[in-house]
Design a protein around this nucleic acid. Structure first.
Lengths: 219, 219
DNA sequence: TAATGTTCGTGATAACTTCTAACCGAAGTG
DNA sequence: CACTTCGGTTAGAAGTTATCACGAACATTA
C-alpha cells in the first residue's frame, strides 16, 4: 500500500519527463517566442512521437500555464532570496533586473501581451501576491517621506481605503504608493529594454534604470 | 479635369478590400489576441475563400507588420494632434493614456512581447522617432531643473555624448532624461494596467497614473 | 507464480492552420 | 476585337493540436 512513500519509481519517471518537456519548451520559447511553441517539435526532439506528450500535459494551454506558473515562482524566489539576504529596495531592484535579463521571454510570459480571454489560476495570483508582499515590506522599512499634496496626496488618501492588495501588512499609504511606483517604473524601463525598444537609440539602459531607481528612493 | 487621376477603379477596389481585411484583422485581434489571427477566418467572414487574401497580402507576417505600422502611425498621429493643439507634457500624457485605453491590443502590438527573430522595417522605426521627437520637444519646452548628482547626474553626462536618438533637437541632457522617464514611467503604468496586472488589487490605476505623471513634472 | 490492472507510447485520423499551384472568368488596355 | 492583367476559385502540400484505439511494459494483487 502506498502510504508514506513519497515517490514510486513511476512517479519519479513521470516528473522527470515532465521536467524534460518543460526544459525543451523553455528552450523553444527563448528562441522563437511563446506563440511558436510546438508540442510536436518538443516530442520529436525528445525522440517520442506526437501524442505521447498528452500523457503528461492536458494540452498546449496547460503546458504554457505551467510555464507561467514556474516563471512567477522563479520571480518570487529571486525576490525572497534577495530579501532574505538582507537586501533593501535597491537590492531588490537589482535582483529584479538580473532576473529579467537572465531570460527575457520568461519575463514576458508574466508581463507581456495578455491573451484577451485568459485568466490565470488563483494559485498564480497568490504567488504574485507573495512577490508584492516583499516589495511592500521593503518600502515600509524605509523612512517615510513628508506628506504630499496634489495627485500623490490624493492617491495616498485613495490607498488608505483601497489597500486590499496589501493585506494586513503594516505599511502607511506612502509606502504602498512607493511600492506601486517601484513596480511600475522598473517594469517600464525593463520591459522597454527587453523588448528592444531602446536598441539603436545609443544610450545605456542600465543607466536609465539606475537613474529611475535613484529618483524613486529620493523623495 | 482630373488628369491628376491618382487612382483607377481597380486601385480603389484594391485599397478598399485591403482596408476591409485589416478591419476584420483588428476585430479579431481585439477579441483573441494577435497570435490567434487567422487569415482563413478573415476570408470566411468576408465571404471569400482562403487563398484570395494572398492577392492583397504576401502572408500573415506582412499583414501583421502592416497592422503594427498602422498602430505606430496611429500613436504618432495622436501625439502630434495633441501637440498641435498646444498640449504640454501633461496633455501628451493624457493623450497617450486615451490612445492606449482605446485599443489595448493595438498598444501591445507596439509595446508587447517581442518576437525573438522579428525586426521592424526601417520606416516603422522612423515613425517611432517622430513620436519621440514630440516628447523631446515638449520636455525641452519645460523650465530646466537644477543640476543633479548621483545616478541622474551620471545619466545626464552619459546622454550628452549618447543622444543620437534625439537627433539635432535643441534639448539639454536633463530634458532628454525627462523624455525617457516620461516614456518609461507612463509605459510602466499603462502596460501593467492594460495587461490586467492591477485587476483585483482594488485601487484605481488612473490615480497611480496621475501620481506618476505629477512626480515626473515636479523635480 | 499467475492474473489483473494501470500506465506509456504508438499509428491512424480529424479538423485546423498557412501557403503554393493551376486554372478560369471578368475587367481594363492596345 | 484581341490581349493582358487581375481577382477569385479549387486542389493540394506541409504544418499544427488533439482524440482514439491498440499493444506492450510495468505494478499490484490474488
Amino acid at each position: 500500500m502506498p502510504e508514506a512513500r513519497t515517490s514510486t519509481p513511476r512517479e519519479r519517471y513521470r516528473t522527470q519527463v515532465r521536467a524534460e518537456i518543460k526544459e525543451h519548451a523553455w528552450e523553444q520559447i527563448a528562441t522563437a517566442g511563446a506563440s511558436a511553441l510546438s508540442l510536436n517539435a518538443i516530442a520529436k526532439r525528445m525522440g517520442m512521437s506526437g501524442p505521447a506528450l498528452y500523457r503528461y500535459f492536458d494540452g498546449r494551454d496547460e503546458l504554457i500555464t505551467e510555464l507561467i506558473r514556474d516563471a512567477y515562482r522563479s520571480q518570487a524566489d529571486a525576490f525572497r532570496a534577495a530579501a532574505g539576504a538582507g537586501a533593501d529596495l535597491t537590492g531588490l531592484a537589482h535582483a529584479l533586473r538580473a532576473w529579467a535579463l537572465d531570460d527575457p521571454q520568461r519575463y514576458f510570459l508574466i508581463f507581456g501581451t495578455p491573451v484577451p480571454g485568459y485568466r490565470a489560476p488563483d494559485d498564480i495570483t497568490e504567488i504574485a501576491a507573495e512577490t508584492m508582499a516583499v516589495i511592500v515590506d521593503a518600502c515600509a522599512a524605509l523612512p517615510p517621506g513628508p506628506a504630499l499634496e496634489g495627485a500623490a496626496g490624493a492617491f495616498d488618501t485613495h490607498l488608505e481605503t483601497h489597500r486590499r492588495w496589501a493585506g494586513d501588512r503594516p505599511a502607511p499609504p506612502a509606502a504602498l504608493r512607493r511600492a506601486l511606483s517601484f513596480w511600475s517604473r522598473l517594469h517600464g524601463v525593463l520591459s522597454l529594454e527587453l523588448a528592444g525598444q531602446f536598441t539603436g537609440m545609443g544610450f545605456d539602459p542600465a543607466l536609465l534604470f539606475a537613474a529611475e531607481l535613484e529618483d524613486l528612493l529620493g523623495p
